[in-house]
Design a protein around this nucleic acid. Structure first.
Length: 270
DNA sequence: CCCTGAACCTGACCGC
DNA sequence: TGCGGTCAGGTTCAGG
């Protein structure tokens, strides 16, 4: 479900309900996620939530004692509910705070994660090796060119690699490459610096716009405040295979790249 | 180190 | 209606 804009939309939606609150209990109904939820999480209580940050697609709930690291995987979502909200089939975790508010984690496919660390979360194994945030100056053309040197992988695979840059998933990789006019299968090491400069700008633009519009709702994604995202109206290639390219009118093509749907225009992208 | 494909899971949808 | 196959917004890991 979530790429960077959806995770950021979730973060913004839930933060006002949780910031400064004290954890009353964490109820784990199904511990089998990507990794088993550590038993210690069920024992956490009387910890104040000091901040809710995002690193890539990870949400970091910093408390007075340690940090909850939450990833939504492919189908996960977080919603603010209350004690009277009925628990449904895939509602695996509830984080209950003193105001009575509940942060409820739902994840049918269970590719997500709930982890706990008492160290600096940025040194955590899963987070320490991540590439730069795409919306900061750390993500720039020099960075991309340096990492791409000599690489033969498709540029789409390259920009979806979280060690290269975080937050770019399948939807926004397709969109950014279309806007940059770059063929998704082009070898990462065979793209000029000039074209990478355009790609950097396109990635920043598409992610920024998607965040502004509350993310993309394909199935039933809603931010923590229950509102859907509106960016799907702005998608120019994702999910539009066979339809007319908005720039040239040609039918958009589709192929599979690392088992992921890849949609592009053979006229506008090379 | 680099690259590819499998694996983790459930549900929706499509064709027979 | 049922069954099998395919696909879905992510990421790690094994193996070549």
């Amino acid at each position: 479900m979530p790429e960077l804009p959806e995770v950021e939309t979730t973060r913004r939606g839930i933060t006002p309900h949780l910031l400064g609150q004290t954890i009353k209990s964490i109820v784990v109904r199904q511990p089998k996620l990507r990794w088993p939820i550590p038993g210690v999480i069920s024992t956490l209580k009387r910890l104040k939530i000091k901040s809710i940050k995002r690193r890539g697609k990870y949400l970091l709930f910093e408390t007075s004692k340690g940090t909850l690291i939450v990833h939504l995987g492919m189908s996960g979502s977080l919603r603010i509910v209350n004690e009277t909200t009925p628990v449904e089939k895939h509602d695996h975790v509830d984080l209950c705070v003193s105001s009575g508010v509940i942060l409820r984690y739902t994840d049918p496919r269970r590719f997500g994660a709930w982890l706990w660390t008492e160290d600096d979360p940025l040194t955590h194994k899963l987070i320490a090796s991540l590439g730069p945030e795409p919306l900061t100056d750390e993500f720039n053309v020099e960075h991309l060119v340096a990492l791409a040197k000599g690489r033969k992988i498709a540029v789409k695979t390259f920009i979806m690699n979280s060690h290269v840059v975080v937050g770019v998933g399948n939807i926004y990789a397709n969109e950014a490459l279309f806007q940059a006019g770059i063929h998704p299968e082009r070898a990462a090491g065979r793209i000029s610096k000039k074209r990478y400069a355009v790609l950097v700008t396109c990635i920043k633009t598409v992610l920024t716009r998607a965040v502004e519009q509350g993310g993309t709702t394909l199935k039933d994604f809603v931010g923590g405040d229950g509102k859907p995202g509106y960016f799907q109206q702005s998608l120019q290639v994702y999910g539009r295979q066979g339809e007319a390219c908005c720039q040239c009118g040609n039918a958009l093509s589709e192929l599979r790249l690392n088992q992921r749907a890849t949609v592009f225009c053979t006229v506008c992208q090379s």
